[in-house]
Design a protein around this nucleic acid. Structure first.
Lengths: 235, 235
DNA sequence: TAAGTTAGTTGGACTGTACAACTAAGTATG
DNA sequence: CATACTTAGTTGTACAGTCCAACTAACTTA
């Protein structure tokens, strides 16, 4: 196969990493995997974001590669998956110049409870931090993912992707509150959600520890909604 | 140099492309470069986004690589530069599996008039389209950049980076209107801009074809401001 | 000197949020 | 079985920001 001279440049390593979020036990959690303990590996035994090298033969494109890694670790096939950004430098991987394409995924709670890979484990995200020290620059990537999630939750309907197929308005509000880590106004939340034309009521009601509550579901084929204002402006 | 087996994977080509915007002649314009006409090159003679391979020896990280390519083509050293996203697939480059890290830059008009590279030229962006057929998937990347710019202009102070150091409020509003391609309300624009605590008045006034107009400048160390509402909601 | 242009202000109608009080319908407890 | 508790959802008032239009002020041009 003839190659042009310029293609003889040394090429950076190319990886894809996925920040996988779910609400579990009333907290925002992220899925991490433990790196192999072999000393030939970088960061042996450390926790890291799920990810790895692009398979030039098998991966059609970057998003397919991210979806593959997500499925490998969780069994989930098509959740919300969004590109987060890319990180590349000469120093982030001890094996050489490397660039990673980072994605973030949102899973409903019950999907997050499924068939986890053996090396994978959920960790709570608290105040943009996570307990273990992460391999590579994954702490920075994770922090960017949490910031992006929090920021988009302010003005979009993203948290709906963290919900089961049917949910009540207060449940949706609680999800917003967990991600944002602050309480929201009940009536303003209701007004905005209903005005957004994002969810629709289903016939059934949920019997809770109170009166029956109206169940809603996401309207089909509805992209994330952009809200005009932030909730509870500071002050 | 000992390498682990997994590093023998074929690596994707890694490039960085920069979408460079400026307001010129009261229109949003983007800088394109013409690809070499040699038949050994992909897309010979076609217009493309400024960009190219990451220099593993010379580029510290992706952003430095983007800044280098920007400086090569425009001479501008440190404008607003933001990561846009990455595009990677087996088919986007005829030479093989490739991934590009795309950035977008905003230049003030006078900086955009500077020392252009010989193969570079400004093109007007009209309705998210640009005249020439672009090489690779650069039309898609450019479209994403325009969308991102328009969208962020709705709710941030980004257009300030397209302004000269000192400007009047109506001039700033005109820049918003050019990017958004629709008129904005004068009094609402003024209220929002001043409330955003983003710009500060300078002592001098500008003598225009009317009375002296107050000059403003960007407050230092001020990140893009997030506005609560969109301008002129549809309808 | 008169007409035109543009910067900036003012006021009324309207919309959506913050906050708090309220009603209604279930559950838990004695 | 009666009472208290909990939570879903509503209502009302105050307030802030936008939309729209009319207005004033200061300069330019004919």
């Amino acid at each position: 196969m003839p190659e042009k001279p310029e293609l003889d440049f040394p090429r950076p390593l190319t990886t894809v990493d996925v920040v996988i979020f779910a609400i579990r036990s009333n907290a925002l959690q992220v899925l991490l995997v433990q790196r192999p303990r072999a000393e030939t590996e970088p960061f042996p035994g450390a926790w890291a974001l799920p990810g790895g090298f692009v398979d030039v033969a098998g991966d059609r494109d970057l998003e397919a590669c991210a979806a593959r890694k997500l499925k490998d670790k969780t069994g989930v096939v098509s959740p919300y998956l969004e590109q987060l950004g890319s990180w590349g430098s000469a120093t982030r991987d001890p094996r050489g110049w490397s660039a990673t394409h980072a994605y973030f995924a949102l899973l409903p709670e019950q999907a997050a409870g499924g068939a986890l890979a053996a090396d994978a484990q959920w960790f709570a995200v608290e105040g943009e931090k996570v307990r273990p020290n992460l391999a590579f620059d994954h702490a920075e990537i994770l922090q960017a993912a949490v910031q992006r999630l929090r920021s988009k939750v302010e003005y979009t309907s993203l948290p709906a992707y963290l919900m089961p197929p049917e949910f009540t308005l207060p449940e949706l509000q609680r999800t917003y509150e967990i991600v944002l880590d602050r309480p929201l106004e009940k009536s303003a939340f209701r007004t905005r959600m209903l005005a957004a034309d994002l969810i629709e009521p289903v016939a059934r009601m949920r019997k809770g520890p109170n009166r029956p509550a109206q169940l809603y579901r996401l309207k089909k084929a509805r992209a994330p909604v952009f809200f005009a204002r932030t909730f509870n402006p500071p002050g």
